[in-house]
Design a protein around this nucleic acid. Structure first.
Lengths: 143, 143
DNA sequence: GCGATATAATTAGCTTAGCTAACTAATTGT
DNA sequence: ACAATTAGTTAGCTAAGCTAATTATATCGC
């Protein structure tokens, strides 16, 4: 491997990810939910019920910030808070079915344009995207 | 192509991008610049000097918001505002060399861990990432 | 078993980042 | 030349971030 090759690939992947999300974000206005709230809801939907602390860590935000976001999601009927049976200091936060539906609709809206573009690619290119996504997911899990 | 294949790939790419950026963001604390400011600075560094309006559009933010962010970047010595010679209503905003250096350092910090992970991949996997990044950049440019 | 310490969440109060509306100044068009 | 448009800023509001302090529960050492 040439010196700097990995770095160059990292830079391109980084830049591509930034631009992709910037672009997809444009359709989020239709969801009627702010970015921090929909992001937190997404963690709840895909990561399952969790405590406030875990959710705050996942969102890289402090506990008081998440406490408020969750209170607002709850007020909108998108999430629930239930006292933990084993540790009564803690709360289990979960997405409601309404929350799941709203988030899923928003996600689909985001993916419409990208899906169309991917349909128009050559089979080889589609396969490259799929492989790369899988590799990245693995790297992200590593740490 | 099977029905839904493109959608599945879109979903995986989307998820991978979200998780990647979430992870890389952790090293940004060291930069001492808030996320909106470093993002705006990044657009200036990589996109070159531009007007307030253009910068606001790139960041998907309204003009008054960007006006304030730019004022703060300027106060920190990271950007300059120069009246446009041809249209004296407009300002050309540019990153200073200090701004470029700060942003580049932050970007390098972000890429350190990812670069190491990519170095550890098989050559074939590295190539898949590179191809995918190029394909995505192209799709992003399309719209 | 009980006091000290630690942990989970919330509340209070501040700063930063977003918005719209209103304003100033310059440009364009008729 | 003057009406309409456009670029940017200012004012003033809400949302989202933070730290410090508080409350309630768990855990630890004795």
């Amino acid at each position: 491997m040439k010196k700097g090759e990995a770095h160059q690939i990292a830079a391109r992947v980084h830049s591509a990810a930034i631009r992709l999300l910037r672009r997809l974000r444009k359709s989020d206005a239709a969801m009627g939910l702010s970015a921090p709230k929909s992001s937190a809801l997404s963690v709840l939907v895909f990561g399952g019920p969790q405590t406030l602390k875990e959710l705050a860590a996942a969102e890289q935000v402090r506990a008081p910030t998440m406490s408020r976001l969750v209170a607002e999601l709850q007020a909108d009927g998108l999430a629930t808070k239930v006292a933990d049976a084993h540790d009564r200091r803690a709360v289990r936060i979960a997405a409601t079915s309404k929350g799941k539906a709203l988030l899923e609709a928003g996600r689909e809206r985001r993916l419409v344009a990208l899906t169309k573009q991917i349909e128009a690619l050559a089979a080889q290119e589609r396969e490259a995207l799929r492989r790369a996504a899988d590799i990245l997911v693995r790297l992200n899990a590593e740490g």
